[in-house]
Computed example of a mutant assay.
Amino acid sequence: METLLNLLDSFGEIPNTSKQKLASLVNSKKFKKKEIIAKAGEIPENVYILKSGLVRSYFTDDKGKEYIRNFITKHRAAGALGSLILNKPSRFSYDCLSDCEVYFLNFKAFKKLAKEDKSIAYLYASVLEQIFLRLEAKVYDLSLLNGTERYLKLKKEIPDIENLTPLYHIASYLNITAVQLSRIRKEIYSK
């Protein structure tokens, strides 16, 4: 729990009384590789913060093809946030690519606490800002960086990504084909 509280401090100073209120809502859980945290079509209840492991979020089209939206790493939020905010079924599924340990809390209880405690409301706003900035950066990357540049950026963020997930997942995340990824990797590693 101390790890989570230290992480929260990175968003700004939070009074101890507010931290204690928030800590009372937080639980932890372990998931095995391939376990699902949140499933498309369902309305989730919880938001998760990874203590360890790797999670992917993905969309599955009508033909069963998966599109990786994101890889979620240590100290990042996982879960269908849009679905939680709108209280509608999620369009995305979230599953563990490795054994994971997470902190989780009921989103409605968290929102209620944010309405009652100004420090928690500021924390919530700061977290949403960080999520927005990450999404904006991904849109920028997809718009302006080529496949090789996106791959190198991903490798910088998650150096051992190839050991954690199949290459076709990486290609999907980069919005390129598996063949393109193979060519990129061959070019990079042959130098």
Rank of each mutant, 00 (worst) to 15 (best):
Leu144Thr: 15
Val102Arg: 00
Ala178Glu: 10
Ser28Trp: 09
Asp9Asn: 14
Asp160Gln: 12
Ser90Pro: 00
Thr73Cys: 07
Ala121Ile: 00
Lys108Tyr: 08
Lys111Ile: 12
Lys118Gly: 13
Leu128Ala: 12
Ala40Trp: 01
Val55Arg: 02
Ala38Gly: 07
Thr3Ile: 05
Ser18Cys: 06
Leu142Ala: 08
Gly147Asn: 06
Thr60His: 11
Asp117His: 04
Met1Pro: 12
Asp95Lys: 06
Asn146Trp: 09
Asp117Arg: 02
Phe132His: 08
Leu84Tyr: 02
Ala80Cys: 03
Asp95Met: 06
Leu128Asp: 04
Lys153Asn: 12
Lys191Thr: 09
Asp141Arg: 11
Glu2Phe: 14
Arg76Leu: 06
Lys88Ser: 15
Ala109Cys: 09
Asp117Phe: 04
Asp61Gly: 05
Tyr58Lys: 05
Ser52Lys: 05
Pro166Trp: 06
Ala77Lys: 00
Lys153Asp: 10
Phe31Ile: 05
Val127Leu: 15
Glu45His: 05
Ile176Gln: 07
Leu25Met: 12
Leu105Tyr: 08
Leu84Trp: 00
Leu113His: 08
Ser57Met: 04
Leu25Asp: 05
Glu129Phe: 09
Leu152Gly: 04
Ser172Met: 01
Pro89Ile: 07
Phe132Trp: 10
Phe104Glu: 06
Asn46Gln: 06
Ala171Cys: 14
Phe132Thr: 05
Ile37Ala: 09
Thr60Lys: 15
Asn46Trp: 01
Thr73Glu: 08
Asp141Asn: 14
Leu5Trp: 01
Glu116Val: 08
Leu84Lys: 01
Val127Trp: 09
Asp62His: 11
Leu154Arg: 00
Leu144Gln: 14
Phe31Trp: 04
Lys65Gly: 06
Ala178Gln: 10
Leu133Tyr: 13
Asn27Ala: 07
Ala23Phe: 06
Ile184Cys: 03
Asp62Arg: 12
Thr17Asn: 15
Asn27Cys: 07
Ile131Asn: 10
Val47Lys: 02
Asn70Pro: 00
Asn146Val: 06
Leu22Gly: 04
Gly41Pro: 00
Leu133Phe: 14
Arg69Met: 11
Pro159Ser: 10
Ile176Met: 13
Leu133Ile: 09
Ala178Phe: 01
Ala109Phe: 06
Glu42Met: 11
Asn46Gly: 00
Leu105Lys: 00
Leu105Cys: 13
Glu13Ile: 07
Phe59Ala: 08
Ser182Ile: 11
Val47Leu: 15
Ser83Gln: 05
Lys30Cys: 11
Ser93Leu: 00
Leu167His: 10
Glu136Cys: 09
Lys74Phe: 02
Val179Pro: 03
Ser98Lys: 06
Glu136Asn: 15
Phe107Lys: 00
Ala171Glu: 03
Lys21Ala: 14
Arg56His: 08
Asn87Thr: 11
Phe107Pro: 02
Leu145Cys: 09
Ser126Asp: 07
Gln130Asp: 14
Lys29Asp: 06
Ala178Val: 08
Leu8Tyr: 03
